[in-house]
Each structure stands twice: as structure tokens, then as C-alpha cells.
Computed example of a mutant assay.
Amino acid sequence: MATTQQFHATGLTCGHCAAAVTEELTALDGVADVGVEVVVDGTSTVSVTADRPLTEAEVAAALDEAGGYALVRA
């Protein structure tokens, strides 16, 4: 059963950033869909639909690999 989680990140400024984040997160095991709402100079929202819960560490690593974006931990 797929679930959708929301994460927040900083450093994203454009569609290219969103595409890079989407590519890295989609590569994670079980991820079916990724949506990114870019907020320039603010906190962007990343929605991930997967067949298992993702850990903050997995998401943080994917954000870093995509371009040094930072996960905002709750």
C-alpha cells in the first residue's frame, strides 16, 4: 500500500533543482512518485509516494546528491 510523505527542504531555486531532486528520490527503492513545490529563498515542499516509509536519512542523502539541498528536520 503506497503512502505519501511530505518533507521540507531549502536551497531549491528553479525547475532544474526540482528535476534533480525528483531524479534522485525516484531512484530510491519503492518510490512511485515525487512532487516538488519550489519556494525560492524559502522552504520547498517535497511530496514522495512510496510503497514503504522513507527515512529522513534517505531523503537527506538524496537531496545532498541532487545538489546540496538541505532537509529541514521537523
Rank of each mutant, 00 (worst) to 15 (best):
A27L: 02
L25R: 01
G67S: 09
A32L: 12
A62Q: 08
V34D: 06
V72K: 11
G35H: 13
T22D: 11
V46D: 05
R52Q: 07
A27V: 02
E24I: 01
A62T: 10
D51S: 06
V59G: 06
V72E: 15
V40D: 12
R52T: 07
G15R: 09
C17Y: 02
T43D: 10
H16K: 04
P53A: 12
A20I: 03
A74E: 15
A19N: 14
H8R: 15
G30L: 01
L54I: 05
A20S: 15
A18T: 09
A18M: 09
R52F: 04
A2W: 07
L63C: 02
V21K: 10
A62I: 09
D64V: 03
M1Y: 10
V59K: 03
T45A: 14
L25H: 00
G68H: 03
A27Y: 01
E58K: 07
T45C: 01
T49C: 04
D29G: 00
A62W: 11
L63H: 07
A60H: 10
S47Q: 14
T26F: 00
A27C: 00
Q6K: 13
A2N: 07
T43R: 13
Q5W: 01
T26E: 11
Q5P: 00
T49I: 05
T45G: 04
S44A: 14
L54H: 03
L25P: 00
A32N: 05
V48H: 00
A9M: 09
A2D: 08
C14N: 08
F7A: 08
V38L: 09
T49A: 07
P53D: 14
V21D: 08
H8C: 10
T3L: 13
P53W: 00
A74V: 11
M1K: 13
T45I: 12
H16Q: 06
E58W: 01
E58D: 02
S47A: 15
A70Y: 01
H16E: 09
T10K: 15
L28P: 09
V34R: 05
L54V: 04
E24A: 14
A50D: 03
E24V: 02
R52P: 04
L71K: 11
E58P: 03
A18L: 11
G68Y: 02
A74I: 06
V72W: 02
R73E: 15
A61R: 13
A66Q: 04
Y69L: 11
G11N: 06
D51A: 05
A61Y: 03
L25Y: 00
E56A: 14
Y69I: 10
T49P: 04
Q6E: 14
G67F: 07
A60G: 12
T3A: 09
A70E: 15
V72D: 14
T55M: 08
L12H: 03
L25C: 00
L63M: 08
V40W: 11
T45W: 02
G42F: 12
A32G: 10
L28D: 06
H16S: 14
T4Q: 13
V38P: 12
L12C: 02
L63A: 07
T3W: 06
T26R: 12
T22W: 00
G30F: 00
V21S: 11
Q5G: 01
A50S: 14
G67V: 06
E58Y: 02
T4H: 05
